[in-house]
């Protein structure tokens, strides 16, 4: 098993499939084994991208293909509309890759998705991969290995670095999820950690956090109270200056809030081993799994 993406053969569409990123990653997802059944670009219906049929609307795509999930590559000014279209067409899982969606739109999209029983993953993240099941997003296909580790991260490439380290150490992953680097995200670190706790195949959890916000502190509270599986964390931004946005919209220390130290302290108090280098993560995981 795995979390969120649990069904092999889950029919997936790509919104914005005719764009540069959309077409490339649609093919990559297919190569990974994801059941990409179609794409949507308004005005391009009836064409195809690398053999994948393109539809004018999500409604058409759902009608023709039975799609249940969508990966959104639509540029930021149009992405919120694309997400609402997907929700209104009955899509229940929407992975948003797009960066720079205003957080005001995300606040409303998140509430709307909740109202309609849909889940959003992202935006501004690499998506979600359940190893051996499907990949919805842009993570490199080559870094995964089936195994017992669940990974949740606020970052993209740092996640690849860490997953690669875990795989090379011979451990492997169940599900890897990048929740996105924005201030408002569809699926939170807290929710994912709870899901990993419930998932039988996940034996240990890796949390990759960074400066800004309070997600790590709140996750640490949950771990303290509800999680009995081993958890290893990594926090990026220990040497980041306050008041500066470090690439991600959400990665900013405001006043004395959101520092790496505050997050490290919270995790350590919750019994989580905090790695200071990515390469320490598999070492800590092995120690924890053996003593568990």
């Amino acid at each position: 098993m795995a979390i969120i993406v649990t069904e092999k053969g889950l029919p997936v569409i790509v919104q914005g499939i005719t764009g540069h990123q959309g077409s490339f990653h649609a093919s990559q997802m297919k190569a990974f084994g994801t059941n990409i059944v179609g794409g949507v670009t308004p005005g391009k219906g009836g064409t195809s991208v690398n053999g994948i049929p393109v539809f004018d609307s999500v409604k058409d795509a759902v009608k023709e293909t039975g799609a249940k999930a969508s990966v959104v590559f639509v540029p930021a000014p149009y992405a919120p509309d694309a997400v609402i279209e997907a929700i209104d067409s009955g899509i229940k899982l929407i992975v948003i890759i797009t960066e720079h969606i205003p957080f005001h739109d995300m606040t409303k999209l998140k509430l709307y998705a909740k109202l309609m029983g849909a889940r959003i993953v992202g935006p501004n993240g690499p998506g979600i991969t359940s190893v051996g099941i499907a990949k919805l997003g842009i993570m490199p296909n080559s870094i995964f290995k089936p195994g017992p580790i669940g990974v949740v991260s606020r970052s993209g490439t740092l996640t690849y670095e860490i997953v690669n380290t875990i795989s090379e150490a011979g451990l492997g992953e169940t599900t890897v999820i990048g929740i996105g680097g924005d201030q408002v995200v569809g699926t939170t670190m807290q929710e994912v950690v709870r899901m990993f706790q419930q998932d039988e195949s996940t034996k240990a959890i890796v949390v990759v956090g960074e400066i800004g916000g309070t997600a790590e502190e709140e996750t640490a509270e949950i771990i303290k109270k509800e999680v009995n599986k081993p958890v290893v964390a990594f926090i990026a931004g220990r040497y980041a200056p306050p008041g500066k946005r470090m690439g991600h919209a959400g990665a900013i220390i405001t006043g004395n809030k959101g520092t790496a130290q505050s997050k490290i302290n919270a995790f350590q108090e919750a019994g989580v081993k905090v790695a200071s280098r990515p390469s320490e993560i598999p070492i800590f995981l092995r120690q924890k799994l053996q003593s568990h």
């Binding site: 740092l158 931004g237 980041a240 690439g247 991600h248 200071s276």
Partner: peptide, 16 residues
Amino acid sequence: ANGAGLNMATIDLIAQ
């Protein structure tokens, strides 16, 4: 570096 997280981590590793 490519990516915000990897960038921050790279800075941390160099400083450490």
